[in-house]
Design a protein around this nucleic acid. Structure first.
Length: 259
DNA sequence: ATGGCAGCCCGAGGCTGA
């Protein structure tokens, strides 16, 4: 089973790239973030013509997450437990049938949290606390699951071109990274780091300052695997070439293959 | 040279993102 995650930075702007990716990478499950549209504006028909169903949690103008699947999900769940009253669309889960039993997949758009001296930062940390609780529940239930998405977390210095430049940024502050480690310490495996120790492996390059041309990126899109999913991990890859397209997203897809 | 972008909104520049 191939599972990918991609922050598309507007699904309507990125529709040609998205359809191209579905055709070429042929994921069984594709988690999307930053749809930037309401459910009714989601290009469901075009995606269906490409052979995929869409579970969508949209929002006007900002945020928005979806899970595209070849097969019909056994179950879809919108929102993180505990975020009732939160108007931001940042979390959706789908449970897929698989040869080795069901796999639960979450598409996550974790808040950016900048500037850190505003209420945006505690909102980010609160979201992470709810995500930790959800992951903990699923671990205890011994689910096979993958938490995929734009975490807006630079886990370690080697995950940034210039880590010093990120000191004090919500993506790299100790409170943020501590919670990311708490998540891992539940027993989750970060897929890319399970397959390479290399520095300079990025999933995001800013539109500004020629960041792409200079390969000044950061790695903030992650797939976290439960123990049962990690046992089945065959490979992980970042589709860096996607960033070189015309009018690209500032993020590229990250994908895994489970046996 | 230390800045350089790209979406959204219901229509222009302000907000947001990372």
């Amino acid at each position: 089973m191939r599972i990918a995650t991609w922050n598309v930075n507007s699904v309507r702007q990125r529709l040609p790239h998205l359809l191209d990716y579905l055709g070429k990478a042929a994921p069984d499950v594709l988690c999307l973030q930053e749809l930037k549209c309401v459910d009714d504006a989601f290009p469901r028909a075009e995606i269906e013509a490409a052979g995929y169903r869409s579970a969508v949690h949209g929002q006007k103008g900002f945020n928005g997450v979806a899970i595209l699947t070849r097969a019909e999900p056994l179950e879809v769940r919108i929102g993180l437990p505990g975020d009732e009253g939160d108007v931001q669309s940042r979390y959706i889960e789908a449970v897929m049938a698989g040869p080795a039993g069901p796999v639960r997949v979450a598409s996550i758009y974790l808040p950016n949290g900048n500037p850190p001296d505003t209420d945006k930062f505690p909102y980010k940390l609160g979201f992470m606390d709810r995500l930790i609780r959800r992951a903990s529940e699923l671990i205890q239930a011994e689910d096979c699951f993958v938490l995929a998405g734009d975490y807006n977390v630079i886990p370690e210095p080697r995950d940034a071109y210039d880590a010093a430049a990120w000191t004090g940024d919500a993506l790299f502050l100790p409170d943020t990274r501590r919670r990311f480690r708490t998540l891992l310490n539940l027993g989750l495996t970060e897929a890319v780091r399970a397959t390479t120790d290399a520095a300079g492996v990025y999933s995001f390059w800013d539109y500004q300052a020629g960041a792409w041309q200079k390969d000044r990126g950061i790695r903030i899109d992650h797939l976290l695997l439960s123990p049962r999913a990690a046992d089945r991990l065959r490979s992980a890859a970042i589709d860096k070439h996607v960033r070189a397209a015309d009018k690209p997203s500032d993020h590229v897809p990250v994908r895994i293959d489970l046996g």
